[in-house]
């Protein structure tokens, strides 16, 4: 089992004929993802890696019953692309594009919310359910199938942690990148909720960083979870008031500090790794101690 994406996910790549789009479309196909269509306005009729390209998402839905999108279009056009995907009825929209204006992000997320679509990102590395489907730009060899769910704000840091888990024989159910921006579609709590309900996930790893309050909200939510959670938080040495690469990674007016997040997580019973390479050991010990997975899948929970 997995969350958000699996072998049934039928993917359209928006921005399929750009450099990034072409490269990652090929990588996703090679991983076994069912990429069935591409969209690039004005490029309808072309093909990328044998995948047909259309002018509109509507056509892609009509011809290929796509239900998810991965967006690579430039920042200035990303809002339009998300509206188009949501309007076409796609349930999962993964926005890889970075540097999208925050007002555009708020507007497209409001639209998605009113249409019950899930937006992952913007500025995310995507979502991968190892062995099933990869919707994003992550390096495939860092992952293997297994019982560990990972939810992260940062790409490379989560690759590092996933690769360490994989090397220790601890595979993953699904790995979700929330995105590094200040305003993103999915947050930790929503993903934890899904992992809690997923019979294929036994332990969750939360990879957070300074800035915002998402980790604190996640800490509160874990108190009601049956599955154990391990966390690593980056930014212990970050000075206040400085944006550390991600738009969202900034300590402002005393909020979003490393200490505040670690304290919230630890007091909720989350095991916080001091260093990234401690994560596999903590996960392994919790897997040994934890209960066996339930034999019967719970009924899928309704949205909100």
């Amino acid at each position: 089992m997995a969350i958000l994406v699996d072998e049934r996910t039928r993917v359209v790549v928006q921005g399929a004929t750009g450099n990034q789009g072409r490269f990652h479309l090929a990588q996703m196909l090679a991983y076994g993802t069912r990429v069935v269509a591409g969209v690039s306005p004005g490029k309808g009729g072309e093909e990328v890696e044998g995948v047909p390209v259309y002018d509109t998402v509507e056509q892609a839905v009509l011809h290929h019953a796509v239900n998810a999108s991965v967006i690579f279009v430039p920042a200035a056009f990303a809002k339009d692309a998300v509206f188009e995907a949501v309007h076409a009825g796609l349930g999962v929209v993964v926005v890889i594009t970075e540097h999208i204006p925050v007002h555009d992000a708020m507007s497209m997320l409001a639209f998605a919310r009113h249409h019950n679509a899930v937006v992952v990102g913007p500025n995310t590395f995507g979502v991968i359910s190892p062995g099933k489907a990869k919707l994003g730009i992550m390096p495939a060899r860092a992952y293997s199938p297994g019982p560990v769910g990972i939810v992260a704000r940062s790409g490379t840091l989560s690759y590092e942690i996933a690769a360490a888990l994989t090397a220790a024989g601890l595979g993953q159910s699904t790995v979700v990148g929330l995105g590094g921006d200040r305003v993103v579609g999915l947050n930790f709590v929503e993903v934890l909720k899904r992992f809690e309900e997923d019979p294929g996930t036994r332990v969750v790893v939360l990879v957070g960083e300074i800035g915002g309050t998402a980790e604190e909200e996640a800490a509160e939510f874990t108190k009601g979870m049956a599955k154990p959670v391990v966390a690593y938080i980056a930014g212990r040495s970050a000075p206040p008031g400085k944006r550390m690469g991600h738009a969202g990674a900034i300590i402002e007016r005393g909020r979003g500090t490393f200490d505040g997040k670690v304290k919230a997580l630890e007091s909720a019973g989350v095991r916080v790794a001091a260093l990234p390479w401690e994560v596999p050991g903590l996960v392994a010990s919790l897997l040994q101690a934890g209960p066996a997975p339930e034999p019967e899948a719970r009924p899928p929970a309704s949205e909100d």
């Binding site: 992260a152 790409g155 990879v207 212990r236 040495s237 550390m244 690469g245 991600h246």
Partner: peptide
């Protein structure tokens, strides 16, 4: 480093070993 998260983590790890990073 490459990636905001891993760059932050790298600074943290340098500090963990007693060093002082000059930049992000």
């Amino acid at each position: 480093a490459n990636g905001a998260g891993i760059t932050m983590a790298t600074l943290d790890i340098i500090q963990h070993f007693g060093g002082r990073p000059a930049n992000f």
